[in-house]
């Protein structure tokens, strides 16, 4: 099947590219746009490390075809920091030692951004349930949950 032209906004910049219909959004971001911050794990929607934000909502980029992202607004891990200033959630992940190998971290951060930014009154049990959407095999989640809870408090302003 021939490649199709798509045009989408990634981290605020308009991008044009070509993709075969069977190419996943995750592969497109990594291979065509060179945005390798989005990691690929299981490629069947279970591990969550490829999570990106599409039109304001967290999605698995391994389960979306790149052609489906045509005209959509995508935010990836590369779009979190403001120049050299880390996103507040990234700072909190660092402070709480919420990562070890770092492989799942892009998925963790993008999932947490959706959970908290779209629901500032989120409770700690809801954060725990929500963050189980991404698998981490090293930290045991304690630091991750502390970081996300602290971020929710910052957003709420308490």
């Amino acid at each position: 099947m021939d490649e199709q032209s798509i045009s989408l906004t990634v981290n605020g910049t308009e991008q044009n590219g070509e993709a075969e219909p069977r190419m996943s959004l995750a592969d497109f971001l990594r291979e065509r746009l060179g945005l390798t911050g989005t990691h690929i794990g299981c490629e069947h929607g279970v591990c969550g490390v490829c999570t990106v934000i599409c039109d304001g909502m967290a999605v698995r980029s391994c389960l979306m075809f790149a052609v489906q992202a045509d005209k959509k607004e995508i935010r990836t891990i590369e779009g979190l920091a403001d120049g050299d200033t880390m996103h507040p959630l990234q700072t909190l992940f660092s402070e709480q030692r919420a990562l070890q190998c770092g492989f799942c971290t892009p998925g963790m951060l993008m999932t947490a951004v959706d959970l908290v930014d779209n629901n500032p009154s989120i409770t700690p049990p809801e954060i725990k349930a929500g963050m189980s959407a991404v698998l981490c095999r090293c930290t045991g989640y304690e630091g991750i949950l502390k970081a996300v809870e602290a971020y929710a408090k910052q957003i709420k302003g308490v």
């Binding site: 929607g45 969550g48 999570t51 599409c54 909502m57 967290a58 999605v59 698995r60 389960l63 979306m64 999932t111 959706d114 959970l115 929500g130 189980s132 959407a133």
Partner: peptide
């Protein structure tokens, strides 16, 4: 499932 799955 999880929220990112329910988004789609």
């Amino acid at each position: 499932a999880h929220l990112p799955i329910r988004s789609r």
